[in-house]
């Protein structure tokens, strides 16, 4: 989850996500048009977004297309939307912790 917040804590990266939200599945070249920075810098931002699972790469022939993946953001919202069911959520969190601790 740290990776997601770190990735989102930058205006340029949010702009890239916005661009994909409007038009999903763009190449690096297409995405460069949205930002006034070098292709290399845009590539670095995209790599960070990919590491956070916010951007997914799909190869189409020799073209590398970038897709917005909102699943991690949804998981963050679930975390706090459920806040008011504290008791039940605590039980679930404990269960998850117990299950994942097993070797």
């Amino acid at each position: 989850m740290d990776a997601v917040f770190k990735a989102l804590a930058d205006a340029s990266r949010r702009k890239l996500l916005d661009a994909l939200h409007i038009n999903n599945g763009q190449t690096l070249g297409e995405l460069c048009k949205h930002l006034t920075m070098t292709r290399q810098a845009v590539g670095k931002h995209l790599a960070l977004l990919e590491a956070a699972n916010l951007v997914v790469i799909v190869w189409q022939g020799r073209e590398k297309l970038h897709y917005l993946n909102p699943t991690p953001i949804h998981e963050i919202s679930e975390r706090w939307i459920g806040k008011y069911e504290r008791h039940r959520l605590q039980a679930l969190a404990d269960l998850k912790k117990r299950l994942e601790e097993k070797p």
Binding site: N53, V56, V58, Y67, N69, P70, E75, E100
Partner: peptide, 14 residues
């Protein structure tokens, strides 16, 4: 630009 519609969602599950 007229493109097909597509999305790709990924999640990692233990």
């Amino acid at each position: 630009m007229s493109t097909p519609s597509k999305f790709v969602y990924v999640t990692y599950i233990r």
